[in-house]
Design a protein around this nucleic acid. Structure first.
Length: 216
DNA sequence: GACCAGGCACATC
DNA sequence: GATGTGCATGGT
């Protein structure tokens, strides 16, 4: 019986050899990552890009401008990303937090200890564990592993961990199995999303999946 | 036309 | 603590 830690490392090696670097997060700067992290909740990234392009075109992709923009206008601009009313609210609540707590300074936010920052982010309405960790890893570069629906599905299908566990259980598994390396966590999560999109959708048998060699 | 996508909050049991 | 539901667009 192979240890889980070793298996997770082998899965990473195989994904990296198959797909190569994924160059995440696809954004120009940390603030754009934060906005994207909220907009991509349960939503295809292509739709998020359209919403972000709209904000850029209106020259609104800035904390202070977004704080001032009317909710109705914000919702209209992010419409392609879906759930636009609720996401407009979530963006607003995050931005209020970002300005109040860190004066909209990425460096100030980065100076916060990741565990403390995570707690604070989770108190912001509309930010759950995945969004918080996406911000901490992809916007700030701290080594925190991001768990998403694909991660759970893949671990479940490979009998590594069944689907009945909470977010932190999955995360702990990666943290205990891998070195605390932000570059590695960045690439691994991106690769999981890549293989998930191509081979591990909800109601799809994993045919031709590079991970099929690891199936029980 | 069904199904899905890089979740989260809230109600109810 | 588990389970169900609303939120919504755009691509396959």
């Amino acid at each position: 019986m192979k240890s889980t830690g070793k298996l997770l490392k082998e899965i990473y090696e195989r994904l990296y050899k198959t797909y190569g670097p994924q160059h995440w997060w696809p954004a120009e700067d940390p603030f754009e990552v934060m906005v994207g992290a909220i907009l991509t909740q349960n939503t295809n990234w292509k739709n998020v890009e359209k919403a972000i392009d709209n904000l850029k075109r209106e020259n609104l992709l800035d904390p202070f401008k977004l704080q001032r923009v009317k909710p109705a206008r914000l919702a209209r601009l992010i419409r392609p990303a879906g759930y636009f009313n609720i996401k407009a609210e979530r963006l607003k609540s995050f931005i209020d937090f970002f300005i109040k707590e860190y004066s909209a300074s990425v460096d100030a936010m980065k100076a916060e200890k990741p565990e403390e920052l995570r707690k604070k982010l989770l108190e912001v309405k509309g930010i759950g564990p995945e969004t918080a960790d996406s911000i901490i890893l992809y916007a700030l570069g701290h080594p925190v592993f991001v768990i998403d629906a694909y991660t759970k599905r893949i671990l479940s299908r490979h009998r590594i961990l069944d689907g009945s566990h909470g977010y932190e259980t999955y995360q702990r598994l990666f943290h205990e199995s891998l070195p605390a390396d932000a570059g590695l966590y960045n690439e691994y999560h991106a690769l999981i999303v890549r293989v998930g999109k191509e081979h591990c959708r909800a109601k799809q048998i994993c045919t031709g999946c590079p991970l099929s060699v690891f199936l029980p």
